[in-house]
Simulated assay, not measured.
Amino acid sequence: MSPKLSASLMCANLVNLEHDIQLLEENRVDYLHIDIMDAIFVPNLTFGPDVVNSIRKITNLPLDIHLLMEHPRVVIRSMDIREGDIVSIHSECKESIMENAAFIKQKKALFGLALNPDTSIEEVKKYLPYVDVILLMLIVPGFAGSSMIHGIMEKVRETRQYLDQHRHTNIEICVDGSVSCERARYMRDLGASIFVGGTAGIFRKDMPLSETIPTFIKSIT
C-alpha cells in the first residue's frame, strides 16, 4: 500500500482556507482531511456539510471526511460524496454502522471506520468485511494540537497484525493525531499507510507548507 498524506483542514488558515487548499494542491497532498464534529461525541464544533460542498467548487482533490458524531446519518446524506473519497464514521456512534457504510459505498467512496484510543479492533470485527480504511485516533479526539497518548503507536502494529491474520490485508490503516514526520516514519513501518498531517506534521509555525509537505512526504516514502 503506497503511503498517502491527508492534510487536516482543521489546522489550516480558516480565514483564507482557499489559499491554503491551493498550496496543498500545488504540493501534491493526496487528500484533504475534513473533521465534522457535533459538540456531543466530542466537545467541539468544526466544519459542516455546506463547507464540504463549497470546498468541492475550488478543488478536485479527494476528500477524507471524518465524522466525529453520535448521529452522522443526516450529515452524510447532505454532502457531495464522490468516488475516491474516504468517509469515516466512528465505531462508537449511536447509529447503524452497516446502513451508513452501505450509503457511502453506494457513492463509490471508501468506507472508513474510526476507533477511539480505547476501542479495540476486536470490538468491530463483524464490520471488517465492509471496511476499506481503519482510522486510529492517537489522541483524545476533539481539538487540534493535542498530545499523542503515550504508547498508542503500538496499536498500529497490533491492528495491522490483526487485519493480516484475519485475511483483511486490503484494509488500510489511517493514523490521526499529533503525527510528526518522525512518528509517521515509525508508524509506516508498523503498517500505517494514510497519515493525517496537522500542526505536528505540515501546518507548522516555523516552516511554510512548501517546505513541510515535501519533508513529510519524504519521511513516509
Rank of each mutant, 00 (worst) to 15 (best):
residue 5 L to G: 00
residue 8 S to Q: 05
residue 10 M to D: 00
residue 12 A to W: 12
residue 13 N to A: 02
residue 17 L to H: 02
residue 18 E to L: 03
residue 19 H to C: 03
residue 19 H to P: 01
residue 24 L to C: 10
residue 24 L to G: 00
residue 27 N to R: 07
residue 27 N to M: 03
residue 27 N to L: 11
residue 29 V to W: 12
residue 32 L to V: 13
residue 32 L to F: 09
residue 34 I to Y: 09
residue 36 I to A: 05
residue 36 I to T: 06
residue 37 M to H: 09
residue 39 A to N: 15
residue 44 N to H: 13
residue 44 N to A: 13
residue 45 L to H: 07
residue 46 T to R: 01
residue 47 F to H: 10
residue 48 G to A: 14
residue 50 D to R: 15
residue 51 V to T: 10
residue 57 K to C: 06
residue 58 I to N: 08
residue 59 T to E: 07
residue 60 N to C: 08
residue 61 L to Q: 03
residue 65 I to Q: 04
residue 67 L to D: 03
residue 69 M to I: 12
residue 70 E to L: 15
residue 72 P to E: 02
residue 73 R to I: 00
residue 75 V to N: 07
residue 77 R to L: 09
residue 79 M to Y: 02
residue 84 G to Y: 04
residue 85 D to V: 07
residue 87 V to N: 04
residue 89 I to G: 01
residue 95 E to M: 09
residue 95 E to T: 07
residue 99 E to Q: 14
residue 100 N to T: 04
residue 101 A to H: 11
residue 103 F to Q: 08
residue 106 Q to H: 13
residue 110 L to A: 11
residue 115 L to F: 12
residue 117 P to I: 11
residue 119 T to L: 08
residue 119 T to E: 03
residue 122 E to Y: 14
residue 123 E to Y: 12
residue 123 E to F: 08
residue 123 E to R: 15
residue 124 V to W: 07
residue 126 K to G: 00
residue 126 K to Q: 11
residue 126 K to R: 10
residue 127 Y to K: 01
residue 127 Y to G: 05
residue 128 L to C: 01
residue 130 Y to K: 13
residue 130 Y to S: 08
residue 134 I to C: 02
residue 136 L to E: 07
residue 137 M to D: 03
residue 138 L to D: 00
residue 139 I to S: 02
residue 139 I to D: 00
residue 141 P to I: 02
residue 147 S to K: 15
residue 150 H to Q: 13
residue 152 I to L: 04
residue 160 R to S: 07
residue 161 Q to S: 14
residue 163 L to Y: 13
residue 163 L to E: 10
residue 163 L to W: 10
residue 167 R to F: 15
residue 171 I to L: 05
residue 171 I to Q: 02
residue 171 I to M: 12
residue 172 E to M: 13
residue 175 V to G: 01
residue 176 D to V: 01
residue 176 D to T: 12
residue 178 S to M: 09
residue 180 S to Y: 13
residue 181 C to R: 15
residue 183 R to H: 10
residue 183 R to L: 14
residue 186 Y to N: 06
residue 188 R to W: 11
residue 188 R to E: 07
residue 191 G to E: 06
residue 194 I to M: 02
residue 198 G to K: 07
residue 201 G to N: 10
residue 201 G to K: 12
residue 202 I to C: 07
residue 202 I to Y: 10
residue 206 D to T: 15
residue 206 D to W: 14
residue 210 S to N: 03
residue 210 S to D: 04
residue 212 T to H: 11
residue 213 I to V: 13
residue 213 I to M: 11
residue 213 I to A: 02
residue 217 I to T: 05
residue 221 T to L: 14
